[in-house]
Design a protein around this nucleic acid. Structure first.
Length: 386
DNA sequence: AACCCGGGGTA
DNA sequence: TACCCAGGGTT
């Protein structure tokens, strides 16, 4: 391991496996400074916070929706989705009453579609078993599908004013720097420390604001790279700032650069003369992008594209199609290489498999499709003769 | 407690 | 390409 000058937590970790949070706070000289820290952070937050559409709404449902959308997804991406969602499903009853496909339509493009299904299922639970009232305790929230330790704490503190701790990626980074917490932040021992710190530090009077402030600080000041320490309201408490190398923490493990390849052959069918219909169907349950609508596709692991006649037999009909290009789509854990064909179908046509159906091209943008299918569609469109 | 899962955006 | 993103579920 590379050594870093002056960073206690790295060469001789103050914190790490075995140390409890009280030792951490005492070793950092924090015992009596907690109140000052809270005030400094909160007054910064009240001055500098962003005006986000889910803030200050005073509706636990809105808080819940925003927290689910924000899981592993950046604020800037969520804003528009949140507003459209709240317009279409303004309360838990309307969400519970919706079809899953409508729910996925609203989620289309956000990714991690399992979140939408959990949220939908949980809405039914809230309506059926809680009379439409979102649970107001940590334990009650935790029982809802899709609500883990972070989300339960966020809803409890933000929507219900309970002094619940939260730990997300931002909090991990902020705490790792504030207290010079060395080692893999995901390790069990360090996770325990992060949660205990969050519990110990959360402002009992303004828990929601405090938690949001911690995350806002992580997102806008205590950034992963090039943290803006000179703008930081709590830099005088920060071991990372004192060390001169705040970026050295947290110690993130490098992920493998090798992404498994998957080869897809997709045939974009358009049905013809009266209106323009596109043939789509849901992806198989359980796999990648499960249930999301796609164009007829055959895919497999590796780099060899399935042949066109495999797609033809999948559809149970002969395909006359011309190749129109390739699309590469990269997930964080996988690479998809797509070879694309275009087929014009003269009605009437019978599609053997029931899972395929025609949808008007104009409705495709609103359908429950993934960003991958959206990308394929866009590429297909630009290859069309006008 | 370890492990798996998984979409998208960006520097 | 690497890394990050207001994580959760399963075993």
């Amino acid at each position: 391991m590379r050594r870093r000058r002056g960073l206690r937590g790295v060469d001789q970790p103050v914190c790490g496996a075995g140390a409890g949070v009280s030792e951490v706070l005492v070793a950092s000289g924090w015992g009596e400074r907690k109140d000052e820290f809270q005030r400094a952070l909160l007054s910064w937050f009240w001055r500098a916070r962003r005006d986000l559409p889910w803030r200050g709404v005073g509706d636990p449902y809105a808080t819940w929706v925003s927290e689910i959308m924000l899981q592993q997804t950046q604020v800037i991406t969520v804003i528009d989705y949140f507003q459209r969602w709240m317009a279409r499903f303004p309360d838990v009853q309307s969400l519970a009453a919706a079809d899953e496909e409508e729910v996925l339509e609203q989620w289309s493009g956000l990714g991690y579609y399992r979140r939408a299904r959990f949220l939908h299922r949980a809405a039914k639970v809230v309506v059926d078993e809680h009379g439409g009232a979102i649970p107001s305790t940590l334990e009650g929230l935790r029982r809802l599908p899709g609500v883990g330790p972070y989300t339960a704490g966020a809803i409890a503190s933000i929507a219900f004013g309970l002094p619940a701790p939260i730990v997300d990626g931002n909090v991990i980074r902020v705490f790792a720097r504030l207290f010079a917490i060395a080692g893999d932040p995901r390790s069990t021992a360090n996770q325990k420390i992060f949660w205990e710190l969050a519990e110990a530090l959360v402002d009992r009077n303004k828990p929601g604001d405090f938690n949001e402030a911690l995350m806002e600080l992580g997102a806008r000041v205590c950034a992963p790279r090039s943290p803006a320490c000179l703008l930081c309201p709590v830099r005088e408490y920060c071991a990372g700032f004192a060390s001169g190398e705040p970026e050295a923490l947290p110690e993130v493990a490098r992920r493998s650069a090798v992404k498994p390849m998957r080869a897809l052959t997709v045939v974009v069918h358009r049905r013809g003369t009266s209106g323009r219909d596109m043939l789509v169907g849901p992806r198989e349950a359980g796999g990648l992008l499960a249930g999301m609508l796609e164009f007829p596709t055959v895919e497999r692991e590796g780099t060899r594209w399935p042949e066109l006649d495999e797609v033809a037999s999948l559809l149970g009909m002969p395909i006359v199609a011309e190749e129109v290009g390739e699309v590469t789509h990269i997930f964080s854990h996988r690479r998809l290489q797509t070879r694309m064909y275009a087929a014009e179908i003269d009605a009437p046509v019978t599609v053997a498999e029931e899972r395929w159906r025609w949808v008007p091209e104009l409705e495709l943008g609103q359908a429950a499709i993934s960003a991958l299918t959206r990308k394929i569609y866009e590429r297909w469109k630009t290859s069309e003769p006008v």
